[in-house]
Amino acid sequence: MAVIEKISGMVEKFPGGGILLTTAEFFVNWGRKNSLWPLTFGLSCCAIEMFCTGAPRFDWARLGNEVLRASPRQADMMIVAGTVCWKMAPRIQRLYEQLGEPRYVIAMGACAVSGGPFHFDSYGTVRGVDKLIPVDVYLPGCPPKPEALLYAILELEKKISQERLPGRSPEEQRVDA
């Protein structure tokens, strides 16, 4: 019953019985946000902080952010950790398109957010990964600490928990602020 206590407010226990009442929307989002499978994908120094966040000291598996997948077909979340260069850009786009849907992207670090220290006077840097693929959460820092990445993952989970199921009208799909 521990799980039900954690999500209280969204689930009603039927008095005296083993029946729970909830909405499909809540249940689907709850499942998605608690089992994000990130792609094993790092570009530069931010990736070191990312691996550290996955290691036992910080252990992002506590958030349901489970094993890093080596194939984009087995993953649904991508942490763009590092500098995106023009040579890498087509590969990043292809990896994103291969991710299972619904897919999510965290832009980790100053480079992935805006180009960072390579924003000006750089021939090789893409000024932000959002020029290539949609980004859900922007995480500034150079590099961000593991705690900051955990916060970004929690923010992504918050965003996922507010999603509306497809098939609703655009007005209904709009997430209430």
Binding site: W86, K87, H119, F120, D121, S122, Y123, G124, R127
Partner: peptide, 27 residues
């Protein structure tokens, strides 16, 4: 060896510039 094979120009030359490069304002 490092840049894409269809790259035009040589970026570490002082007179290099391309469409994507953004000059720092004031320089």
């Amino acid at each position: 060896i490092l840049l894409p094979e269809d790259w035009e120009g040589y970026p570490l030359r002082k007179d290099y510039s391309d469409d994507k490069l953004l000059k720092r304002p004031g320089n």
